[in-house]
Design a protein around this nucleic acid. Sequence first.
DNA 1: AAGCGACCCAACCGCTGTGAG
DNA 2: ACTCACAGCGGTTGGGTCGCT
Length: 335
Amino acid sequence: MVRSPCSHATALKKGPWTPDEDTKLIDYIERNGHENWKALPKLAGLNRCGKSCRLRWINYLRPDVKRGEFSEEEERVIVNLHSALGNKWSRIANHLPGRTDNEIKNFWNTHIRKKLLQMGIDPNTHKPRIDPSHFLNLSQLLGAAQSGNIASPWNSFLKLQAEVTQLANIQLVRNLLQMMNTNTLTNIENNSLLGSQNPSLFRALVNGTTISNTKEPAPISQDLANPPVTPQANNGFQDISNLWGSCEGGFGPEGLNTNGNTWSSSYGIQTEQNPLPALVSASTSPVTSIVHQTESKGDPSNYSTTGTPTSTIFEAWEKLIDDDNISSYWNDILD
DNA sequence: AAGCGACCCAACCGCTGTGAG
DNA sequence: ACTCACAGCGGTTGGGTCGCT
């Protein structure tokens, strides 16, 4: 392996760049360009290696570098792209004019990563950090609740309400996971998603509908068709899928789920309609209350531009998790 | 005000990809 | 086919800054 000249050129200066060095580098590149980074420092009168000059120019001195805080839109794009591309910072940076891979990488590690972790989402897999055993416990709880002795109409109502609430919560988890595993594979690098928040994506979250690309037949790149997926993440997905299958039976034939579709056993893209019916009324579920708030705004396209409190996946999660009524419930699932 | 730890980010390091010879 | 040199990428580091005690 050929080592970088910088690694053994100890006579060359390292560390932070001085304003004088910056000026020299800018002046030279503006006059002569940067076709040969190796030769550039000597020609520009800099005691730096070419690699260092290149990095300084690309990450800081380039005139089109955008400085300052990342916007919410940029953050959203980064998350969407990262969910499909992984730590391909350079490719992500291609979609954010003026932002460098280094800057995006730093922003991810210092801000987004923490944010995702706080929300109970694994920043590597973009899936909720779920211990399958918790889901088993939940399944058992639901089964026990359903098989409990119903002593009175009031008791029956309370049980039904609890079940409906939990069903709605589970459906949100399901929609999130489905969306993360479907939408990101089919829509990333598609301008309809990157340019602004995708209304379909949010509808999928709140309604349980599956994103499809019927309006956007843009070809899927090879990377997106075969995204990097860790075996561990895949297993977790299957576990949840299986669990959901068991929950379907548990909720009975009263119309809560009658379609019979099941999750794909892998990261295959589901193109059929969502097997789940519409959620129950908003008054009975904290989840559907979120849905209700948003849908009441009318045109789904409004979700993206008005900055409503539930306009992103993150915010939907945050709202849900922050709700005192169900915080303990989510802690069980997400912690 | 001082000490300390957490955080941020520019820069470095080491590796891979690629093209020329 | 092979070697070499360079560009580019992603992970990591360390110095500066900030906030808390």
